[in-house]
Design a protein around this nucleic acid. Structure first.
Length: 898
RNA sequence: GGGAGUUUAGCUCAGCUGGUUCAGAGCAUCUGCCUUACAAGCAGAGGGUCACUGGUUCGAACCCAGUAACUCCCACCA
């Protein structure tokens, strides 16, 4: 036999993945079986696999593989997301390196480069998923920007527009000056930043009507606190609280903006917090959301001094062309020079940053497209509240509800090129028209025009000609999420062909596995779209994974450099090892503190399975031998079913890491450490046929249980001739997953006592430094009803006992122990420290007496006896009897030492 | 500022409706072993005032109230 002592994953992984592909095991087409469907959360095309994907996709693969083995028609749909901002940023950067500026390109040219880039790098992450063993139906791979999915986006836009749920308007949006696009509220990450609060003097203009105000002595100026001094040039007013006594005298007056000396009015509004800062607020409608609203209310002009790229424009009058942050520093100096800066304080406040580019968000007024959310949020909330969609863990329901009840309209336009272009068409002097194509837009315009005034055929032709020359499509694209919210429907072509076989069969899908961070971005919106377009939520369960953190609890990120490359890990520990490692440290719903040592544990486990196989593989069967392991076999059978029940339960509750741990212990402890040790024939001895067959059967069952977690090693072993000849199609991946059968509880209970006996003997050996090779004799004084005769063989073998003698009296000069009510003695005449032995017994008796006392106290407590349930009381009585019996035994034994 | 969650062994976590022999697992640690499946291993051991303070109860890791620490989400205070 020349099987390697160590499991070598590299050889097997490729081989079996290819085999699975060849056999089309991942392929799913509708049939009569019950479907089990997962759509992948499409990773960004720009992405490379990181630990978050690793976790997320391992979980999906475990679920899919298990479902497949349970006989369901398992379908895992893979794909990628075009990720407009992230991808466009990468393409722009790539072009820049080549010396090309996006500004110098036409839209088409840019898209050419972008597609080229996508073709080149877009497939990487999916290839990487293969190495981890993902059993996706690759024939179904979709991309959110491919033609059909883009059409779905356009159709959806039109549909919602017709419903009046999509509208255009000027709003204060979150502007990303780096990406030069608006981003949604959800894409803004707020961080507390150390800032400076600048106290700036605004001098009052000469008093009203030329009359000096008497009590205005020191103050020819007001002081205003701001974190953004570079925006003072955009100020439209100063606002005070009408109830603020301190500023009563300022009503109706105006001040000059420092440096540029533009006069602005002082207005009053209760919005201003008297307590904060100086109680005076500068109102900058163009650059602050609240100020904007204040401006609308008080009819103030909007002065936008910041360009799309975050530099100051000519309306600023000074510091034109400077970046906003540079301008901030410079203006502080200028103000200081001119004596306008009263003081500067350190100040902490929340600043928004773009999720995609990490640029500080600039509130900016602009014309954008919005999607109304309130109507769609209602049913989407209902699905979760009534349990049709289950969030796992449940705690997210609260957060979900809160969000859905306070949902705001969704800014869906993005000032980018990479994405689905907004299907709005403009002609000078006309309202925008929403249509799929230029032609349809023109027709639409014609109809509108026709409705206004009747046109002759000539006029029509003229009109058509005129508008087809001037008509222009909106330059913007829709938010990426505006395509991914359709994903569970669009991957099955549910928009183009709403009654097709696939969508009818696979939709709604079963489980969605994703990160809680995108519960609102994506999950909530998918539920909305699911309801709107299919009348059904898109999935039944949403498993929200934790965030992968490092050992110190920091989120794994590129910038921290604390994230291992999953592919390196797979190289090092094997895909099965990494999968196990990932799951071992991922309790459902909690973040996981990842550490490489978990992968090591996973690898060791794979190796354990490998070696168990080597052992069995090496046995020679002797047909003439009769079965000498009946007890061990029935014990393991029961134990297996007991564990399987537990595993099923864990899976039902999506406790994957517990399901894995249960399997791990079943294999390592019960199967390897106990069962195999019990039946293992002596060196170079054959095994009987019956035991061998049973063991092979157990092994197969174990491989099946392990398969969803460790697909490669299990498939590899599955095909060994040990298990008989297998056809190409007869694979572990499609083997029938076992279903738990009834088991013998009494046998399991008795056996746990037997294990204790073995452990006690080993313990005595250990403490007395007796070699395992030295056989011992065991004397047993039985008072329980366990039939130890059934177990003498097992005990003898596992504890190296040469003689098993029933006795009726305690045996002095021996090391003794108690298991249950049965007493065991190992004669060790010259190796016994009598004092120590006596002491040990006394200690045990003391402990038992204490224990008995507490039980007695309970039982003599009337209220306990009155209130507690009968079985609890019974149990206490049993404990009492048990303790009393043990004390009697031990005390009897102690006689021998007196 | 509002809300949610967490706090159990050195680490990561179980502990389901309060009640099986003084609270469990895996890893790590310690001790002894290279015993022909596996040192990526075997056998054994140690390790916890269940964050803190009260309360309810015959009985609390579990229920209630408060306190503290941490985490996350939401929010326009310059």
């Amino acid at each position: 036999m020349s099987i390697s002592k160590i499991y070598n994953p590299r050889e097997t992984e490729n081989k079996w993945y290819t085999h699975w592909l060849e056999q089309k095991f991942f392929r799913s087409v509708p049939d009569e079986r019950e479907p089990y469907t997962i759509v992948i959360p499409p990773p960004n095309v720009t992405g490379v696999l990181h630990m978050g994907h690793m976790l997320n996709n391992t979980i999906q693969d475990v679920l899919v593989r298990r479902a497949r083995m349970q006989g369901k028609n398992a379908c895992w749909v893979p794909g990628t997301d075009h990720a407009s901002i992230a991808t466009e940023a990468k393409v722009v950067a790539m072009l820049k390196e080549k010396g090309i500026d996006k500004k110098d390109l036409t839209r088409d040219e840019f898209m050419g480069y972008a597609w080229e880039w996508k073709e080149k790098y877009g497939g990487i992450i999916l290839k990487q998923l293969e190495t981890l063993g993902a059993s996706c139906d690759w024939d179904r791979t979709r991309f959110t920007m491919e033609e059909e999915l883009s059409e779905a986006v356009t159709d959806t836009f039109i549909h919602l527009y017709k419903k009046g749920w999509i509208y255009r308007g000027i709003r204060m949006v979150n502007w990303d000056p780096k990406g030069k696009t608006a981003v949604s509220d959800e894409e803004v990450i707020r961080r507390e930043i150390n800032q400076k609060l600048y106290y700036i003097k605004y001098y009052l203009s000469p008093s009203v009507g030329g009359q000096a105000i008497a009590n205005l002595t020191t103050s020819d100026f007001l002081i205003i606190a701001t974190t953004r001094p570079e925006t003072i040039m955009a100020d439209s007013a100063i606002c005070i609280n009408p109830n603020d006594e301190r500023y009563r005298h300022l009503k109706g007056r105006s001040v000059f903006i420092p440096l540029i000396n533009r006069a602005i009015p002082i207005i009053e509004d209760e919005y201003v917090d008297i307590e904060f800062g100086t109680g005076c607020l500068k109102v900058t409608p163009a650059h602050d959301l609240n100020d904007y609203e204040l401006g609308v209310k008080h009819n103030l002009p909007v002065i936008d001094i910041i360009n799309d790229d975050g530099t100051l424009n000519d309306k600023a009058l000074i510091l034109i062309g400077e970046d906003r942050f540079a301008a901030r520093k410079k203006i502080a100096l200028l103000l200081e020079e001119k004596g306008h800066l009263e003081r500067v304080e350190d100040y902490k406040s929340q600043i928004g940053f773009s999720e995609r580019t990490d640029a500080a968000i600039e509130p900016k007024l602009s014309m954008q497209w919005f999607c109304k959310m309130d109507e769609m949020a209602k049913p989407a909330l209902e699905y979760v509240l009534n349990g049709e969609v289950k969030l796992i863990p449940e705690k997210f329901t609260n957060t979900y509800r809160h969000w859905m009840e306070n949902v705001k309209d969704w800014c869906i336009s993005r000032q980018l090129w990479w994405g689905q272009r907004i299907p709005a068409w403009y002609v000078q002097g006309e309202e925008p028209v929403i249509a799929r194509t230029r032609e349809e837009a023109i027709e639409e315009l014609l109809i509108i025009s026709e409705a206004r005034s009747k046109m002759s055929e000539n006029e029509k032709a003229d009109f058509r000609l005129r508008i087809s020359e001037s008509i222009k499509q909106d330059d913007d694209v829709v938010d990426t999420w505006f395509s991914s919210w359709l994903w569970p429907i669009s991957v099955f072509n549910g928009f183009k062909d709403p009654d097709n076989k696939d969508i009818n069969y696979y939709y709604p899908t079963n489980d969605l596995v994703t990160a809680p961070e995108i519960l609102f971005f994506w999950v909530a919106r998918m539920i909305m779209a699911g309801h709107e377009f299919r009348g059904k939520a898109p999935f039944k369960n949403v498993y929200l994974t934790g965030i992968v953190r490092d050992k110190a609890g920091r989120k794994m990120s590129k910038s921290l450099g604390n994230s291992p490359d999953p592919i390196d890990l797979i190289e090092k520990y094997g895909a099965d090892g990494v999968r196990v490692g990932m799951l071992l440290c991922s309790p459902a719903g909690n973040d996981l503190m990842f550490d490489e040592s978990y992968c090591e544990q996973g690898r060791n486990f794979a190796n354990k399975v490998w070696n168990a196989f080597r052992l069995v593989k090496g046995w020679e069967v002797d047909q003439s031998l009769s079965n000498s392991n009946a007890t061990a076999i029935s014990w393991f059978e029961s134990r297996f079913n007991e564990a399987l029940l537990q595993i099923e339960e864990n899976f039902n509750q999506y406790r994957l890491s517990e399901a894995l741990m249960e399997t791990y212990k079943l294999v390592w402890d019960d199967f390897c450490a106990w069962y195999l040790e019990m039946i293992k024939p002596a060196y170079q001895h054959p095994i009987d046929h019956e035991t061998f067959t049973a063991t092979i059967g157990f092994f197969e069952h174990i491989l099946k249980l392990l398969h969803p977690f460790m697909p490669f090693i299990t498939e590899d072993l599955w095909h060994d001739e040990l298990f008989g000849a297998r056809k190409d199609k007869d694979c572990c991946i499609v083997a029938v997953y076992p279903v738990s059968q009834s088991f013998e509880a009494v046998l399991l209970k008795d056996f746990s006592l037997v294990k204790q006996v073995v452990s006690e003997i080993r313990n005595i050996r250990n403490s007395k430094q007796i070699s395992p090779k030295q056989a011992l004799s065991l004397h047993v004084k039985i008072s329980s009803d366990i039939n130890y005769k059934d177990y003498t063989g097992i005990i003898s073998k596992l504890a190296n006992i040469s003689e098993f003698t029933p006795v009726t009296d305690t045996l002095s000069g021996s090391s003794s122990f108690l298991v249950g009510r049965d007493e065991f003695f190992i004669p060790l005449a010259d190796n016994i420290d009598v004092d120590a032995e006596r002491e040990r017994l006394e200690k045990e008796v003391d402990y038992l007496k204490g224990f008995l006392k507490s039980v007695d106290a309970k039982l003599s407590n009337e209220r306990f006896v009155q209130n507690a349930k009968a079985d609890i009381i019974d149990n206490e009585r049993k404990k009492k009897a048990d303790a009393e019996a043990k004390i009697r035994i031990l005390e009897e034994n102690l006689q021998g030492y007196k």
